[in-house]
Design a protein around this nucleic acid. Structure first.
Length: 517
RNA sequence: GGCCCCAUCGUCUAGAGGCCUAGGAUACCGCCCUCUCAAGGCGGAGACGGGGAUUCGAAUUCCCCUGGGGCCA
């Protein structure tokens, strides 16, 4: 009994998509749980949309997420090649085998003819199925069609399966009594959904190889999964309806099909399949927004599966240990950004505790991407970012929070929010408070949070100001906003000179806003 | 059009006939803490899509309907 092998089959037509990343993660979890292998297969059969750049980006995104693979185009392996574009000869061989055993036949019908048949079926309100016309063409007919320049497609002869000898003990083809007659069913044994039966007579002779010689998705998949010794195919439900066709192909080729598990589809808030239209469908956008891979993994695990009642935070090791495919849910989960944000906050706080330098790197990178810092930092610049991160602390749940709470640390002059100015910088009292603060700031020693707080409290008490009445205007003067880190910590990081400059500038800002009203 | 899948609070879900006056988390709303925000603590509101059937008893089993999704394309 060979070990478990799963596959991750991305198309290099864009960046790794969140939905695919999630499915990839489940494939990875399952394989690791079983002590098996993960195979990465690049499905680049569409040359117009595939590119090596995207292929590299997918490796990068997958690795960033913490998903590794044992075989793939970049790492090699005994069952390659691992790019579909390099496997055409294998599809051709399999097609020839099908022809050789009489399981498939050449079809000379043109797309126009097929379309016509389909229209007629639709008009007569009956389900369209290919007529099977080409199954019985005479040699003379074929020669004539070839002379016309027609190139044949290859169709699987599904009729061959209407034969009791296929009904065997393993139960993939079952005869069921229905309305007094036997009907044959192709039965998919799905690890998540149980037995799903498809009437054999619902299936027509489907195309396996196009007239231009290229393999159809279903066919390439079967050849690849078998060739790569895949034992467990974990993929989205949208492939469930294709599975009976694939099972037929396995049988026609004399191969044992793998086990199937059809995962639900991740959907957006509108309950439609997650796509670019939802924005942030690319995994790397989350990376850019400072989402941590371990947070994503934990969050992904909780979509359609719960490791244990009551708990939500799990290390990846725990997830691997507990993963149980049979407990995976069948309904489509909505990808909930808010809960992800919460979870990222949990992991961000943990990172702050356990590896603050990592957070410093992330924040520095984020600031650089937003033009507030250069790409590479001088030691003192980095030290400054470290101080900012300390002061921002657990307020950072995602990248945007860095700017939301701390952009003023990196701006020459804060961006004054009009609402904050109107509320706290205008008027006589605000001006008086700012003057008072200037005085305190000029004199306080040392220029540190504790001393600042003590001095400002004392000064406020002497003048009969409440602490609130002092803190709010000063905060707006220094940061431009009403939210943010503790005032005294923030002053310490800013330093005496800048604080004084901003305090002074804020008096002018308040006056200008007042006169503009 | 045919076939297939799916259905518990807004969202992620627990629930596999009585433990359910349906539990947790998130989001939301209050209160507390507090220089604001965040975090934290406490509390609140909030769901079994509808109808039948089986059963002493159904969120849980079966059937139909409705709604969503997919495949053939």
């Amino acid at each position: 009994m060979g070990s478990v092998r799963t596959r991750i089959p991305p198309s290099p037509t864009g960046y790794l998509h969140v939905g695919n990343a999630w499915a990839a993660f489940f494939n990875w979890l399952f394989a690791r749980r079983q002590g098996g292998q993960v195979v990465l297969r690049i499905e680049d059969t569409d040359p117009t949309r595939s590119s090596p750049e995207y292929e590299r980006a997918i490796y990068e995104d997958l690795r960033w997420l913490g998903i590794d693979w044992d075989e793939g185009p970049d790492v090699g392996g005994p069952y390659g090649p691992y790019r579909q574009s390099q496997r055409a000869h294998l599809y051709r061989e399999a097609a020839e085998a099908l022809l050789r055993v009489g399981a498939a036949y050449r079809c000379y019908c043109t797309p126009e003819e097929i379309e016509q048949e389909r229209r007629r079926a639709l008009a007569e309100r009956r389900p369209y199925r290919y007529s099977g016309r080409c199954r019985t063409r005479s040699e003379a007919e074929v020669r004539a069609l070839e002379r016309e320049g027609r190139r044949p497609a290859l169709r699987l002869d599904v009729g061959q399966f209407h034969d009791p000898r296929w009904v065997t003990a393993d139960g993939w083809l079952q005869a069921r009594r229905e309305d007094g007659r036997d009907r044959l069913y192709v039965v998919v044994h799905d690890l998540i959904r149980g037995e799903v039966a498809f009437g054999l007579d619902e299936l027509d002779d489907f195309i396996v190889v196009r007239s231009d010689g290229t393999a159809l998705y279903n066919f390439a998949n079967v050849v690849d999964d078998h060739g790569m010794r895949i034992t467990h195919v974990l993929r989205a439900v949208e492939h469930l309806s294709n599975t009976p066709r694939q099972v037929l192909l396995y049988r026609a080729l004399g191969w044992e099909p793998p086990q199937f598990a059809h995962l639900p589809v991740l959907v957006g808030p509108d309950r439609r399949k997650l796509s670019k239209r939802h924005g942030d469908a690319a995994l790397r956008e989350y990376r850019d927004e400072l989402y941590l891979p371990e947070a994503l993994r934990n969050f992904f695990a909780l979509m359609a599966w719960y490791p244990e009642d009551g708990r939500e935070i799990f290390s990846t090791e725990e997830l691997v240990q507990r993963f149980d495919l049979t407990q995976v849910g069948r309904a489509s989960p909505v990808f909930d950004r808010q809960k992800l944000l919460w979870m990222n906050g949990e992991y961000m706080r943990r990172a702050l505790r356990e590896d603050p330098e990592r957070v410093v790197d992330l924040v520095a990178g984020y600031l650089a991407r937003h033009g507030l810092l250069p790409e590479s930092l001088l030691p003192e610049q980095r030290a400054y970012v470290r101080r900012v991160v300390e002061v921002l602390g657990e307020r950072i749940k995602e990248g945007a929070d860095v700017l939301r709470y701390g952009d003023f640390f990196f701006l020459e002059t804060p961006r004054y929010e009009p609402q904050a100015v109107a509320s706290y910088l205008q008027g006589e009292q605000a001006a008086a408070v700012l003057k008072l603060a200037q005085q305190v700031v000029r004199e306080v020693e040392p220029f540190a949070a504790a001393a600042l707080e003590a001095a400002l409290r004392r000064a406020a008490a002497e003048r009969g100001f409440s602490m609130r009445a002092v803190v709010h205007p000063v905060r707006v003067a220094l940061t431009g906003k009403t939210v943010g880190p503790g005032l005294f910590e923030l002053m310490e990081v800013l330093g005496r000179e800048r604080v004084l400059r901003r305090l002074e500038h804020a008096v002018a800002v308040g006056a200008a806003a007042g006169s503009a009203v």
